[in-house]
């Protein structure tokens, strides 16, 4: 028991003293995951909205596909991205392997299905809710697209945070395509795995606590957003 307390004390010391190594890793993790989230949302939100609003041949198949991809195993994504970005792969000429760019691409592949599916579900719900309203006051279809997104803003923020949560806590894909290189591609999750295997538990626990804190922050933000939305009749 004393051993665990001692490790926790060391871990807390690392956090409180703003240890350079720890916070370099944290900062890179946030940068990579946030960039992946922004780029994913640029693709997934319009895609989910189009899927939610339109009825066309193959729509159900696409919805099923994205729903299935929500549970995509990160190591499979890592392996696939590795094959594509490796020197002999189709995009090997870009030299992205073992760089943060490769990790962003891998995380995007994990986030896009989540944001697309959840946006599609939300927009479909709104479509049912507002169909009569838009027909009764003749809102143009091109305008409806923006109105749906504006109306769903709180729900969308929650969806984005779910995507961010998936990205920042993921380890399998980024370790394969990033390589866990010190000062270059070492993320919180990959560093925790490495330091645990080396027996450097204080650093691993420090990073684990920060990861937990970020998860708590994300959930707290979702909770606050829901309370605000409810309070102002926007839920």
């Amino acid at each position: 028991m004393d051993f665990i307390i001692e490790i926790f004390n060391l871990a807390l010391e690392l956090i409180i003293s703003f240890d350079e190594v720890v916070f370099e890793i944290v900062w890179l993790s946030i940068k990579v995951s946030f960039t992946a989230l922004i780029l994913s949302c640029l693709v997934a939100v319009p895609l989910g909205t189009v899927l939610g609003l339109n009825r066309f041949f193959g729509r159900n198949f696409l919805i099923l596909l994205f729903n299935t991809l929500m549970g995509l195993p990160p190591v499979v994504v890592g392996l696939s991205v590795y094959l594509i970005l490796s020197r002999s792969g189709p995009l090997g000429w870009m030299n992205f392997l073992y760089t943060p760019y490769a990790m962003i691409i891998a995380q995007m592949i994990l986030i896009i299905p989540i944001v697309t599916s959840l946006t599609c579900q939300k927009v479909e719900e709104l479509f049912m809710e507002y169909r009569e309203l838009f027909l009764s006051v003749r809102v143009k279809k091109s305008q409806q697209f923006w109105v749906y997104l504006l109306d769903a803003r709180y729900a969308l923020l929650t969806i984005f945070l779910a995507g961010f949560g998936r990205a920042i806590s993921e380890v399998g894909a980024v370790i394969i395509v990033g390589g866990n290189i010190d000062h270059v591609t070492r993320m919180m999750t990959t560093a925790i795995a490495m330091h645990t295997s080396r027996g450097d538990l204080s650093l691993a626990i420090a990073l684990g606590l920060i990861l937990l804190f970020i998860a708590l922050l994300v959930n707290l933000t979702v909770f606050i957003l829901k309370v605000i939305a409810k309070r102002f009749g926007y839920d």
């Binding site: 507002y130 309203l133 006051v137 809102v139 143009k140 109105v147 504006l150 939305a229 926007y234």
Partner: peptide
Amino acid sequence: QCMVLQTPTFLRLSVYQNIAVCLRRDNF
């Protein structure tokens, strides 16, 4: 023609925005 529904539905937006939506045609 326009219709006032028996049970009106409102967007999760302000009073102003709920009206403004009906005037938007080509520009947001």
